[in-house]
Structure formats: structure tokens, C-alpha cells
Write a protein that binds this DNA or RNA. Structure first.
Length: 157
DNA sequence: GCCAACGTTGGC
DNA sequence: GCCAACGTTGGC
């Protein structure tokens, strides 16, 4: 199976790419996704070794900061069972968990973080889900072509 | 099962 | 801070 590519959004105030680089093993559990479409991707589609673009949302400027890799495939998000967590979901059952996550590990920091404006101006990225109006999905598929364009530009500086 | 009301996301 | 777009909830 060919590896696939994804984009995850994070508010840098909450958890930035720099935070991921500083984390133990540069790895984190991507907790807190509470949207069924994104849940399905996390649970069923994201596979070990898949590439992830790390996007900073709700900040100025919004950027793709670097890449990460899926290091553990979908498993139940523990925070849904933690009453003290912001992500607690009283209706989710241990024997039938509602929310899933994957673990991601930082891979390459972009020498040249790509701003949203730059993405919009880049040929070949016109159809990118991220750039569509109203695209709020916090985990999105990225095509091979988009991945190639973005990582080339980001890593070459 | 419809749909209005509501809450959230996230670009601007 | 505003508000459009979207997802979810809940009354009926």
C-alpha cells in the first residue's frame, strides 16, 4: 500500500510545531478531535508511515511549519474518558469508544515555512482542501502532488 | 426525519 | 472582533 499524505491543523498557542519538536521522542498523541469526518480518517485511514503537513491555524500568518509522520495508527482517544479533560465526552463508552487518535512524530522542520498566501499563489495547489472556503476539517487528505510541491518548497528554503 | 437554533472554527 | 460556513442538537 502506497503511503498517503495528510494535513493537520493546530493553533500554535495550544500546540505548535516547535512544541512537537520539544516533546518526548518528538511525538504526541493527536488528542481532542471531536468531529466525525476527522475521526473516521484518524481511525480508519491514517496508516503507519503516512506523511503529515503541520499547519498553524488561527494565527498570523498561518503557515505550514513542517512535516510529521504517523507513528501509531488509530486507537481510542483517552481524553474522552477523562472527566478533568476539556475533551471529556460523558456519552462515549469504553467498550465502544467514539473518538480516536493517532500518534505523530515531527519529521522535518521547514526552512521556509509556507504561508497561506504563498500556498494560494502556488501553481498546482488550486484544488487544495485547506484553501477552500469554509474548509474547517482539522484533519485533511493531501494529494501526492500537493505533498511534493509543498515539501519541495518548504525544505529547500 | 425535518429544520431552526445554536455553538464552533478559523480566515480576514 | 466580526461573521460566514459548517456541524450538531433537539423540538416537533
Amino acid at each position: 500500500v502506497a503511503k498517503r499524505y495528510w494535513l493537520v491543523k493546530s493553533e500554535p498557542e495550544v500546540f505548535s510545531f516547535a512544541d512537537l519538536l520539544k516533546a518526548k521522542d518528538k511525538t504526541t498523541a493527536w488528542e481532542g478531535v471531536r468531529n466525525y469526518q476527522a475521526r473516521n480518517l484518524l481511525r480508519d485511514e491514517m496508516k503507519l508511515g503516512d506523511g503529515v503537513l503541520y499547519y498553524h491555524s488561527s494565527t498570523d500568518p498561518q503557515i505550514i511549519a513542517g512535516t510529521a509522520v504517523v507513528v501509531r495508527e488509530g486507537y481510542p482517544d483517552p481524553s474522552q474518558f477523562d472527566e478533568n479533560s476539556d475533551y471529556y465526552d460523558a456519552d462515549s463508552k469504553k467498550e465502544d469508544p467514539r473518538w480516536f487518535l493517532v500518534d505523530i512524530k515531527a519529521d522535518r522542520e521547514f526552512k521556509h515555512p509556507l504561508t497561506r498566501d504563498e500556498l494560494k499563489a502556488t501553481k498546482g495547489l488550486e484544488g487544495m482542501m485547506l484553501l477552500k472556503k469554509g474548509a474547517r476539517l482539522s484533519v485533511q487528505p493531501v494529494t501526492d502532488k500537493e505533498w511534493a510541491i509543498i515539501t519541495k518548497r518548504g525544505l529547500e528554503g
